[in-house]
Design a protein around this nucleic acid. Structure first.
Lengths: 147, 147
DNA sequence: AACGTATACTTGCGAAATGCAACCAGACAG
DNA sequence: CTGTCTGGTTGCATTTCGCAAGTATACGTT
């Protein structure tokens, strides 16, 4: 993936980094799925390839959106976490959820969640940020992603 | 661009449609640049290729995000406008602007605009929607008795 | 009516990105 | 020491992209 700046537009700047079919799904897994390990990202239902995943994680790390640290509990593993810049993507992801849910007739997103976002957007964003910076342990039941 | 549904996730649903480097730039041109013709999209600084542009416009039209109507003033032209589903993307685009502006040290986005978005987000969204739907698209009923 | 130009595409082709399977090295577990 | 887990890399076929050229229809000018 060759990606250099195409223009000074802030949207183009954003898309130059994560404007593809996979980057935001990996970030979604970190935000909503609370995944942190390579193999956990692979397990998301969409089936990303290992080489593409490795590439995206490196790219996001170089861009300062994701941080890679060794796992003290198992030296084979690395822990991928969001930086502050990564946490700033929560609103982007939320709007993608809102649009997708509204226009997908078969969405599993609950009306309740959408109402919360509509009525108290700031609180929802704050909530996700806090839960992530507090390093809440992985709870599979919280996942929005498939399987 | 082969794109079928990868999962039930609303984010994946969104990205299956416009998760690439060009779709959102075209939509940006419609929302912020008020462009409506094929050649206008080509003139945007990023330099999209004609075949890719044609493909994206068709894809967005089939998805019901964009509408293609003949231009009564020049029959070579078509006018591309946003549908309601397209207007629903304004919040997504705004968040991309916010993220891009915050993390691009050389952004041209004014602090004033960012403050408006922060402080009265709903109003900004409403504003763009209105300005766009005010540009009344061609409606057959309107052309019955031309001036 | 004839001619040049504008517009919205399509086509063809080399280059890049993706998807898939296989392979590999370092750690861990028994 | 052996087998397995983890996080990758490598190689290759397929798909998509980027670029240049070509085409069909419509317009504007003379």
């Amino acid at each position: 993936m060759k990606r250099q700046r195409r223009s000074v537009c802030p949207i183009a700047f954003s898309l130059d980094l994560f404007g593809d079919r996979w980057s935001l799904l990996v970030l979604r897994d970190m935000v909503f799925g609370k995944r942190r390990h390579f193999h956990e990202f692979l397990e998301s239902g969409e089936g990303i390839a290992t080489n593409v995943l490795a590439d995206r994680l490196n790219r996001l790390e170089r861009a300062g959106v994701v941080e890679k640290t060794p796992d003290p509990a198992d030296r084979r593993r690395r822990i991928y976490t969001l930086t502050e810049a990564g946490l700033d993507l929560v609103p982007v992801l939320l709007e993608l959820v809102v649009w997708g849910a509204r226009h997908d007739p078969a969405t599993p997103v609950t009306e309740d969640f959408l109402r919360r976002v509509r009525e108290d957007r700031e609180a929802v964003v704050r909530d996700f940020r806090q839960r992530l910076s507090a390093r809440v342990p992985v709870r599979p039941s919280d996942t929005v992603a498939p399987e």
